[in-house]
Amino acid sequence: MANSANNRSGPDHALWLVIVGLAAWAVPGAGHFLIRERKRGVILFVCITALFCTGLYIGSIGVVNRVASWPWFLAQIFFSPAVGILSKLTQNGQFPTYGRPCDIGQIYTGIAGLLNLLCILSSVYMAYCGRGELIGAEEDESA
């Protein structure tokens, strides 16, 4: 236990936290998957991705637009860096969206981004607390 506490203060552990955070941002749920919280990772991936895709389906990909609707984009970008690429496609206005579908699409995609921010923080905190080492080891032993 003392050894694990020492490991948590080293540069390797800081790098590990950064990797977990970046993975969680790149793919929703991947941060939890890395720290061996696999069931949690799969649930988060399915829920957040389904929410984001539903938002895109309802409002079209035009709801992601960092020029016309930048406040929403600030929330959407937390879903994944891929949202930035999507925004490059839509910023010249070739995918018009309007009215209630636009509202619902923006709310869905924005909330999906913010939920992924919650997951990023959760996975980094769990990695900081050594959850992967403890619970993952128990899972490996029982398997």
Binding site: I58, G59, S60, I61, F95, I104, G105
Partner: peptide
């Protein structure tokens, strides 16, 4: 189908979209 918005009117029924969220 992801490039055009769905047709959802400004009706009370559109509030039902809050439940999946």
């Amino acid at each position: 189908s992801f490039t055009t918005p769905e047709s959802i009117g400004t009706t009370p029924q559109s509030l039902l979209w809050m439940f999946p969220l």
